[in-house]
């Protein structure tokens, strides 16, 4: 019995250490995606570039950002962060950076440029990780709830706008991708917008804001109403 428990603990410890290294591992994976064969695969179609490769890079940056946010007190990363934090009240600066990065890399011209030039693609990798994933992880936790709601709506709208544009265009907007591919990418972006909307709206509509029983708490404060 004890042996089993020990083994279990070891597995848990290993998993935990892996999670601690997740940011590094994920960034490494992102760099791997830039290697020619994987890069060619990841950018062979518009759907892959927009809906697989780029989200993966953003995710890697996000993991790194989360590790930065959670860096142990007193570490160099934490000291740097608390300095950087003073420029990022309510996550405003990070969200501005992230917004521009997101929109820039969804433009058809940028998709083409990344596909056609390794240098620009490397820039894309760096900026999606450190100009989108990382700032979101860093800033989101600092955003007030109202700002989060507005950002959600804007992200949904942005996905839908680009999706619609790609799906509706009656010519190829990217020289590197076929029309059918572009339409598919457009429809998938619209689908992503819808999915995002459902996921984001579900809890406010039916489930509450997480943590405890908000209604009960409120009742105590102003019981007179209920």
């Amino acid at each position: 019995m004890m042996v089993h428990l020990d083994r279990l603990r070891a597995v848990v410890r290993a998993a935990a250490s892996l999670t601690r290294r997740l940011p590094l591992v994920s960034l490494l994976l992102a760099v791997l995606l830039l290697l020619p064969p994987l890069r060619a695969f990841g950018e062979a179609t518009m759907v892959r570039q927009m809906l697989v490769q780029m989200p993966l890079i953003v995710l890697a940056g996000w993991c790194a950002g989360r590790a930065w946010v959670r860096a142990p007190e007193g570490s160099r990363a934490a000291r740097l962060r608390s300095f950087a934090d003073s420029f990022n009240r309510a996550g405003a600066t990070g969200i501005v950076i992230a917004s521009f990065t997101m929109i820039l890399w969804m433009l058809p011209r940028s998709l083409d440029a990344a596909r056609l030039s390794f240098g620009i693609d490397a820039l894309k990798f760096a900026s999606l990780a450190f100009g989108l994933g990382l700032p979101v992880a860093w800033s989101w936790v600092r955003c007030p709830p109202i700002a989060r709601a507005v950002i959600h709506v804007e992200v949904i709208a942005t996905l839908a706008r680009f999706g619609w544009g790609f799906a509706a265009a009656d010519e190829r907007l990217c020289a590197s991708y076929l029309q059918g591919d572009q339409e598919r990418a457009g429809m998938l972006l619209v689908a992503a917008a819808l999915a995002w909307a459902v996921v984001v709206a579900w809890r406010p509509l039916f489930g509450g804001l997480g943590g405890g029983k908000p209604a009960a708490k409120a009742d105590r404060r102003d019981g007179a109403i209920a």
């Binding site: 934090d85 003073s86 420029f87 990022n88 009240r89 309510a90 405003a92 600066t93």
Partner: peptide
């Protein structure tokens, strides 16, 4: 922080 954030 407010001024820095606004500036940044």
């Amino acid at each position: 922080g407010m001024a820095r954030t606004l500036g940044a």
